[in-house]
Amino acid sequence: MSILDTTASILKLMVSLQGGIRINDVITHLGMPKSTASRVMNQLESYGYIERNEVKGVFLPGPLIMSASHLVNRQAPLSELVDNALRSLCERTGYTGYISMLDNQEILVLRVIHGRQSLPVVTWPGSRSPAWGTSTGRALLARLSESELQAFFSSPQVAAQLNGSPHTVEKLMAAVIRTREAGFASAVNESVADTASVSCAIGDPTTHEAVAFCLSFPQTLAQPQELQRIATLLKETALLIAHKTGDTLVSHQP
């Protein structure tokens, strides 16, 4: 194995284990002899690829890797990464794409990318709707901690939105939990009539920015197999972006 292959394998191991690694991890997971593992780790440390945390006794990504990561973030902000990826998906599927953000208790549409498939209703940038009632909203709510989610559903604005509706907080929270477990959210004939959508959310830990992106299409096309196909495409895209932004919430999803 070349030094480039070895370096890539060690960095991938850090990503896989989601944290610092020890020499024993290299020995166990990569099948490397102890003497070789020690020598390689020392070499990578001297070049700045990794650095040793003396307190925890682990190796972490080094200054060279971190500097390159910050450079990527400056050159390609989250909005640009998502926009480019979603345009590619719209071209590939023919469906309409939306990019949205969570603004207090509402979902705010930021951008629309029109596809070849016409929609019964188009939601325009600047449109707002209850976050719990859309696939993009549920995708973003799934990123919240349990305490943040409780605070969201106990807010006066959400209480007013739910007043007189058939929805209950318990069922809506359960839907968000299912979204968190699945890694995507879907909606069929919910807030937008005769329309279906599948959404994923992605964030940038550096800027604390998070957006949801979705593909929307006529309800008549929303068969289980098609919903799953679109969900797979979106999850793969979210994971690729997460590798660039360092969003572990996405990379931890199944």
Results as ranks from 00 to 15, higher is better:
Leu240Phe: 14
Ile202Arg: 10
Gly20Asn: 11
Phe184Val: 01
Glu190Trp: 00
Arg128Ser: 01
Val82Met: 01
Leu17Trp: 13
Ala231Gln: 11
Leu162Lys: 08
Ala37Asn: 06
Leu81Arg: 13
Glu54Gln: 15
Met32Gln: 07
Val169Arg: 03
Ile230Lys: 06
Leu172Ile: 05
Ala8Pro: 02
Ser165Gln: 05
Met32Lys: 09
Ile107Pro: 12
Val250Ala: 03
Gln43Asp: 15
Met1Ala: 13
Ile27Thr: 13
Ala76Ser: 11
Lys34Arg: 14
Leu64Phe: 10
Val158Cys: 02
Trp124Lys: 08
Ser197Trp: 00
Pro125Asn: 07
Val55Met: 10
Phe213Gln: 04
Tyr95Pro: 00
Glu146Asn: 12
Val109Lys: 02
Ile27Gln: 10
Leu11Trp: 00
Glu51Trp: 09
Ala159Phe: 05
Arg178Asp: 15
Ser35Glu: 11
Met101Val: 13
Ala139Thr: 08
Ala222Gly: 06
Met1Phe: 05
Gln228Phe: 04
Pro61Arg: 14
Ser100Tyr: 03
Ile65Asp: 11
Ala68Met: 02
Met32Glu: 11
Pro224Met: 06
Ser16Ile: 02
Leu60Pro: 11
Asp103Lys: 05
His208Lys: 10
Leu4Met: 10
Asp204Ser: 11
Ala131Thr: 13
Arg74Cys: 14
Lys56Ser: 15
Leu4Ala: 08
Trp124Tyr: 14
Thr93Lys: 05
His29Asn: 06
His114Thr: 09
Gly133Pro: 07
Val40Met: 07
Met101Arg: 14
Ser38Thr: 12
Val188Ala: 00
Thr7Ser: 12
Leu149Met: 05
Arg92Asn: 08
Val121Trp: 00
Cys214Leu: 07
Trp124Val: 06
Ala68Asn: 04
Leu11Val: 04
Ile27Arg: 09
Ala231Tyr: 02
Ala185Trp: 00
Ser46Tyr: 07
Gly62Ile: 13
Ala196Gln: 08
Pro166Asp: 02
Arg39Tyr: 09
Leu13Ala: 02
Ser199His: 07
Gln105Leu: 07
Leu110Met: 13
Tyr47Asp: 05
Val158Glu: 02
Ser145Val: 10
Thr220Asn: 10
Arg138Ile: 12
Glu148His: 09
Gly126Asn: 07
Cys200Gln: 14
Phe213Gly: 09
Thr237Leu: 12
Ile241Phe: 02
Gly246Ser: 02
Thr93Val: 13
Val176Ile: 08
Pro254Val: 09
Arg52Glu: 06
Met14Ala: 07
Arg180Glu: 01
Leu4Pro: 03
Ile177Gly: 04
Ala187Leu: 09
Met66Pro: 04
Gly62Ser: 10
Val58Trp: 14
Cys90Phe: 01
Ser191Ala: 12
Asp247Asn: 07
Ser191Val: 13
Val109His: 03
Asn104Pro: 01
Gln219Met: 02
Ala182Ser: 15
Glu170Trp: 00
Thr93Ile: 12
Glu146Phe: 12
Glu51Ser: 14
Val109Cys: 03
Ile50Lys: 05
Gly31Asn: 14
Gly20Thr: 15
Ser154Ala: 12
Leu149Glu: 05
Lys56Ile: 15
Leu233Ser: 07
Gln18Val: 02
Arg39Glu: 11
Trp132Tyr: 15
Leu13Thr: 04
Ser79Pro: 05
Ser127Thr: 04
Leu221Gln: 06
Val198Asn: 04
